[in-house]
């Protein structure tokens, strides 16, 4: 049987990791000179408590060794580990973090549990990488800006007129895909984006003279803003045909250090 191993930036709930026997390698977060192993020395809720305390006391932010500039730092470490161990290990660079990575891992682990072999799982992961879409929103762009993860001009725009960006990834870089004014417009925009995306995959089945609409699977993550996550979940449930239960998870400290609290978003994929 194949075992799936990921790192703590996959932001999967512990219950899911246990259920699917997913190995999660913790990454490090440091507050000043103090280092913590994510999920081991510091729980996710503890992280946000500490984040706010540290920011208000020192004005500083926690630092993390990952995700690196190219988001693929863990892959390099994994490849080094692979060389040292004489085992059948395949390292795959997802090019994503948080919900995007989490959803790939979840799909792969489910396939492994269903007895799929290595080749089938690898093929499935490669397909999922192209299919999965990520949308997320941050309450305050200053955190992404401080880490150089979003252009200065974009960050500036976000800090006035209550403009909230809807962001995604392109080639491992964060890109804004939409901007809305006021938090009330965020959910309708998500709905519009998912609808637009899904419209590409609606198929007509001439044999049965019926329309085949894809179902979606969603991993929803949030950085200590459960109300936002709940509203988003309710919208997804009422507006879309969800194949699996929507998994909601807290964003961990490594990703949370870069986005700041008040970040929420989804990764989704689809099936017929």
């Amino acid at each position: 049987m194949v075992k799936i191993i990921t790192d703590s930036t996959a932001d999967l709930p512990e219950t899911i990791a246990t259920q699917y026997n997913i190995g999660v390698v913790p990454l490090y977060i440091s507050f000043g000179n103090k280092m913590y192993k994510e999920g081991v020395d510091i729980s996710k809720p503890e992280f946000y408590h500490k984040f706010r305390e540290y920011e208000s006391l020192s004005g500083g932010l926690p630092t993390t060794s990952q995700p690196s500039s190219k988001l693929s730092g863990t892959c390099e470490s994994a490849n080094r580990a692979k060389k040292e161990l004489n085992k059948d290990i395949t390292v795959i660079d997802s090019g994503m973090v948080s919900a995007g990575l989490g959803l790939i891992v979840l799909c792969a682990a489910r396939a492994a549990k269903n007895g799929k072999n290595k080749e089938q799982i690898i093929e499935m992961i490669e397909e999922a990488k192209g299919k999965i879409k990520v949308y997320f929103t941050v309450e305050n762009l200053k955190y992404l800006e401080k880490g150089g993860r979003i252009g200065k001009a974009q960050a500036l725009v976000g800090n006035i007129l209550h403009i909230l960006p809807i962001l995604s990834f392109k080639d491992g870089i964060i890109i804004p895909i939409e901007k809305v004014r006021g938090s009330k417009k965020v959910l309708p925009k998500y709905k519009e984006l998912i609808n637009r995306e899904m419209a590409n995959f609606v198929k007509f089945n001439p044999k049965e003279n019926s329309i085949l609409s894809p179902q979606i699977e969603v991993l929803l993550v949030h950085a200590d803003c459960i109300e936002k996550a709940n509203e988003l979940e309710a919208m997804l449930r009422t507006s879309f045909n969800c194949k699996e239960a929507i998994t909601t998870s807290l964003i961990g400290g490594v990703v949370g250090s870069h986005t700041g609290p008040g970040t929420w978003g989804i990764a989704f994929t689809w099936y017929y």
Binding site: G32, S58, G59, G60, L61, T63, S69, K146, G148
Partner: peptide
């Protein structure tokens, strides 16, 4: 010393 106001630009 204590490091603060870290800014990284690409």
């Amino acid at each position: 010393g204590t490091v603060s106001e870290v800014k990284i630009e690409d």
